[in-house]
Every structure is written in C-alpha cells, then in structure tokens.
C-alpha cells in the first residue's frame, strides 16, 4: 500500500505540473522558442525519435565505459592505498586535486592531447575523471573499516595479505563501494555531457551535442526532449545501481534490510 503511494504521489505531481504547464503555454501564448508546451516536446521526441535514440546510445556508451573505468581504477587505487601507506601519502593529495579542479577547465586540454580523431576516448577520459573520486573515497574508507579483531584473527591463523584482502577487507568494503558507485554513476553521465559540450560541433554525437545544436537552431522542443532523455538516463542509472546494491546487501547489511 505505502509502496503504491510512493509511486502514485510523484506521478500525480508530474501530471499536475505538466497539465498546468500545458495550460499556461496556451493561455499566455508563450512563443515555442522560449518555452514549448509538453505536447510540443512529446511531438519533437516522436519526430526525432531515431536520431535522439542514437544520441542517447552514444552518451550512454561513453557513460558506461567511464563508469567501468572509474570503478576499476578507484578500487585498484584504494587497494594500493591499504597495502602501502607510502603510496597513499604520495598519491592521495593528487587524487584530491583531480577532484577539486573543475573538469570543464581541463577537458579542452584532454581533448587536445588525446586528439579529435580519438574523440570517444577523450570523452571517456573526461567522464572517468569526474566519476573516479567517489569510488576511490568509498572503497578506501570501506577497505579500512575492517574489524581490527577480525584482522588479528586472520593474522593469528597465518593469513596472507591476499587472503585478508579477499576474505575480510573487500566484503567489508562492499557497502561503502556501492554507495560510492551510486554517486559515480550519476557523475559519469554528467562527465560525459560536459565532455560533449567541450568537444563541440562535428565531433560528438551524443545528447549534449543535440542540446547545443537544438539551442543554436532555436528548436527548443527538441532541446527539451534531449534534456528529458538525459534526466531519464540518470534516473535509470541510479535505479540500476540501487537494485545492484539491494541484491548484494539485502541479506546482511543494515542499510538494505527492510523491517
């Protein structure tokens, strides 16, 4: 019952807002190049469906690659940090610098260095940088959160570093890592969009490029359609990662156990 209401109330709000929006556009005769009505956006979506889907696919592909790369790199770096204090001391400040430097500012450099003939690689690198840090932070915290007594017990029984990592540290880190991954999933999409914006015309074919292009042509309805698809993609990514988290943690972790 409450589950149904969780879905019903937001849907009702959406219907209300869209209805009011539609009415307001017609009532005040708002020009379509300023703000198109929801019906016009839906029409634009249908009219450009094939090309918008291709753009969505392109953006999602960059996002997926960046997310996978950020996860692998983040976990690998975090494992390195827990194995070597020296490595952590040396590298951590640079990880922070990478995180706090606005990626829009370094994206043009990356595009130049990688080259416009490898545009997909350049986009993936930019998006990876954006998504990397939450994974690193989550995995590092998680790997360090292993129960000290459990680590002592492993030592007592002569466990190797690899055994400790595999049997104790990684399972302990899983909830923290998944939380980082949920943040990183959304960031990978944002990173892909930012990279496409910077890459600009003639190179990128993703949704962000469609937004720029539609804006330039004053096809605001198409712009909104692309925007809606981006938002939808973000929601789907978040939902998929939440599902993964639930599947992996539901049996044992407090955060995923329902009453």
């Amino acid at each position: 019952m409450t589950r149904a209401l969780d879905i019903a109330f937001p849907l009702a709000l959406a219907a209300l807002v869209l209805g009011a929006w539609e009415w307001a556009i017609h009532h005040w005769q708002v020009p379509h190049y300023v703000l198109p009505a929801p019906s016009a956006i839906a029409q634009a979506l249908c009219a450009n469906f094939a090309s918008l889907m291709a753009s969505l696919g392109s953006t999602l592909w960059v996002t997926l690659q960046a997310f996978a790369a950020a996860t692998l790199l983040g976990v690998a770096t975090a494992i390195g940090f827990t194995q070597s204090r020296l490595l952590e001391r040396t590298l951590y400040p640079y990880a922070v610098i990478l995180q706090v430097t606005p990626v829009v500012a370094i994206a043009p450099l990356i595009l130049i260095w990688v080259g416009f003939d490898h545009i997909n690689l350049a986009l993936v690198i930019v998006a990876t940088i954006v998504a990397f840090f939450p994974i690193l932070a989550g995995a590092t915290l998680g790997l360090k959160s292993a129960d000290f007594n459990l680590l002592d017990l492993a030592r007592l029984h002569g466990a190797s570093r690899l055994q400790v990592l595999w049997r104790i540290r990684l399972p302990t880190a899983l909830p923290y890592l998944l939380s980082g991954m949920k943040t990183a999933g959304g960031l990978a999409l944002i990173g892909a969009v930012v990279a496409e914006f910077v890459a600009g015309s003639g190179t990128a074919t993703g949704l962000a490029w469609r937004i720029v292009e539609s804006g330039n042509r004053l096809e605001i309805a198409t712009l909104f359609a692309a925007l809606a698809l981006l938002a939808l993609a973000g929601v789907v990514i978040f939902a998929a990662l939440s599902l993964l988290e639930w599947a992996l943690l539901r049996r044992w972790h407090e955060s995923a156990i329902s009453e």
Partner: peptide, 28 residues
Amino acid sequence: ETGFVFQEPTLMPWADALTNVRLPLDLK
C-alpha cells in the same frame, strides 16, 4: 595451534555461521 575468542563475537556479517566457523580452515 591457537584459538582466540574475543569479547565480541567478531563474526563476518556477510557470511553464514558455517562460513564464519570455516575461516581458520579457509586461511590454511
């Protein structure tokens, strides 16, 4: 060969009782 019991049960929350008990053997 030494066994150690802590003040807290100190179990692995993700693993069932059998897997928890098995840990010293797994490590060997």
